[in-house]
Design a binder for these strands. Structure first.
Lengths: 115, 115
DNA sequence: GCACTACATCGATGGCTGTCAATAGTGACA
DNA sequence: TGTCACTATTGACAGCCATCGATGTAGTGC
């Protein structure tokens, strides 16, 4: 299983610029789906709010009130979408957000500057 | 059935600012889910790319290759999420994007300005 | 080696959702 | 009034997915 089924860089011009092709829509949709879950949104915000910008899985299960397998699953989805990075240090796995990935998504959603 | 189950304005600070509550995450998730579908992304871009910024349902089924009920369903989802407006003129229903809604989503995703 | 901890994976399950055919509602027009 | 065109709703079905318990894997320390 590869770790980057979804490309990191922008897939297309801002969504309001010109009509999306089916392929572009599929790529964008895959990234947004990775984000469009309450648990994953909270995970992202928890990671970003951490002092060092990273956290291990064991620190994330309690605030979410979800089981460890479920949290691990959500982090895997975010990782495959390129929204977070994973670094194993000893027994722990530390996750951190990829700000550029979020910025890229935001850029696609930003409407073209109109009066 | 109300037309605005999802509020129009921003639900929270940028996602990377501070940890989301469960409620905030649910609201944000609902809006992102409305967007995270290839068909709906293409609908949004088709609407935005229209000369007048609006289009009737009959003009949208062909480019998407979906049946009329399905397109109507997707437009309904976007409408309930506050991402598009609907205006019935005679027999036709004209849909248009709400730029502010997209901008609000983009703002939440935009990482806090960091060096 | 053995026990313990942290994390990932597997299998199952219940709920959600995208899709269509069929149907209903509504405005236009003769 | 009757007919036609456009749109929304309903019902049904298939596929996806969030969740959990159980299990596997790997690192740590005794």
């Amino acid at each position: 299983m590869t770790t980057l089924p979804v490309l990191q860089d922008a897939c297309c011009a801002p969504i309001t610029e010109e009509a999306l092709t089916a392929d572009q829509a599929a790529v964008l949709s895959a990234r947004l789906k990775a984000l469009a879950e309450p648990a994953r949104l909270r995970l992202i915000s928890l990671l970003a709010a951490a002092p060092d910008g990273e956290r291990c899985v064991c620190d994330l299960t309690a605030p979410l009130g979800l089981s460890q397998p479920t949290v691990s699953h959500h982090l895997g989805v975010l990782h495959k979408a390129g929204l977070v990075t994973r670094e194993k240090r000893g027994t722990w796995a530390y996750y951190a957000v990829v700000p550029e990935a979020l910025a890229s998504l935001a850029a696609v959603l930003t409407p073209a500057a109109r009066s």
